[in-house]
Design a binder for these strands. Structure first.
Lengths: 230, 230
DNA sequence: AGATCAAATATCCTATAGGATTTTTGGAAG
DNA sequence: CTTCCAAAAATCCTATAGGATATTTGATCT
């Protein structure tokens, strides 16, 4: 994630990643980032399920730090839509997506991701293209979820537009949470669809990549929609 | 802006707005929100130009509050991409868009806004549609900038997808800042283009609205691009 | 004059404390 | 048994203080 004044929704990137032989001086980078990542990880892993109250005091005691950095981290999480705040009542993890939100989310993905796939097929770097993996070798649902996130992230980045990559990354967080609530999704189909997309991108076939991505998202929507009765 | 777990990028909405006869008890809503809006307004009005250092101490003295709420507000602004932080060095307003970022921004708008215009034409509410204004009666560049923001916001909301509305709103902030740096833009053309779009939407002509919006954004890009030599 | 380095200042980051508000608990009345 | 209300507990919100770091200033040397 390159520097970008427009790189809205700053998810503090892991400092230990993507720095092959960086000669920069080690910057402790502060407690806030660490607390941020900790809480964010807890939300993504459902250790903090949706609509769970998050107490500043409790977190301070649990993590052994004072309230100030925790409040800052929660403010950032709030700006990123992972928690919500009520005045004098504290923070709470956001509610799980309902049907209407799922619809909106996939409408947005359907608008942006096929376009991103086309552009990625046309201009993606060779190394990133080689790193694409369908998630076939995933050993668990959690492992597949992570590989799926990486798959879509790589393609979004391959489109060469930070705004596209960032907005899709932000949305994918909620897909991840939603999926984690229902562990019965069929991953085989998704793996096959991923393979089709990878093949189109490796062939530098933009139109085919776009169509394959569109189909993948539509089917993915169908697989997820059934989990909501409403 | 309706409540939405996905309503990422929470820009604390003005509490005095859009509450015609609300019977809810007055919630002071805290210093943080007020500080947030104050700093945000200062950035948008160029009272805090791009790449200006923002000192927590100075702000605390200037606003007469302690550092804690200011730090929280700045954390939110950072998550929204309006300021950036360097550890132990403080906050700084984000840099003005360069050519590459302008290109990415308008590529994104060109992808999303025409689609939003089509959907708005098909399903927009009558009252919102009546509120659409081209900005003809704007008396200054600043006034036109605000009306332009409202114009695009109404259409984005008319599309009925909070994710679309939110992401476009966030991007438009940067368009606003960019434009404010160069006050020589021709607004007459934009007004005319707005009128074309309004006519198409009022006629419930989705295809025409989409095309008109596409043309408007392309021309708007052309008008803004000239301000960057690089 | 320009560059270099050290001291002084300004600022940031985290911790702690006190007042204000919400939530919960417990008991009494219907 | 349920409902309602008051007191207690927990929690939040803001302010202030002290240690740590970056930035600036100013003097010295080449």
């Amino acid at each position: 994630m390159a520097k970008s004044a427009l790189s809205v929704g700053k998810l503090p990137s892991n400092p230990a990643s993507a720095q092959p032989a960086d000669r920069t001086i080690t910057r402790p980078s502060g407690l806030v980032e660490e607390v941020y990542r900790r809480i964010r990880a807890d939300i993504l892993s459902l250790r903090l399920p949706p609509e769970t109250r998050v107490s500043v005091d409790s977190l301070a005691r649990e993590l052994g730090v004072s309230q100030t950095p925790i409040r800052e981290a929660l403010s950032m999480l709030e700006a990123n839509g992972l928690v919500s705040k009520r005045h004098f009542a504290g923070y709470m993890t956001s509610a799980r997506m309902d049907r209407a939100q799922l619809d909106e989310l996939f409408e947005f993905r359907l608008l942006v991701e096929p376009y991103a796939a086309r552009k990625a097929a046309q201009g993606m770097g060779e190394s990133d293209m080689a790193a694409l993996t369908s998630g076939e070798e995933a050993s668990s649902h959690d492992a597949f979820a992570d590989m799926d996130t990486a798959f879509h992230r790589l393609i979004a980045q391959g489109a060469g537009n930070h705004l596209i990559a960032d907005s899709l990354a932000r949305l994918h967080i909620h897909v991840h949470i939603f999926r984690s609530c229902f562990r019965r999704e069929i991953t085989e189909e998704a793996v096959h669809e991923h393979d089709t997309i990878i093949a189109a991108i490796r062939a530098r076939n933009g139109a085919k990549a776009e169509a394959a991505m569109r189909g993948h998202i539509e089917r993915s929507y169908g697989r997820l929609r059934d989990f909501i009765k409403e």
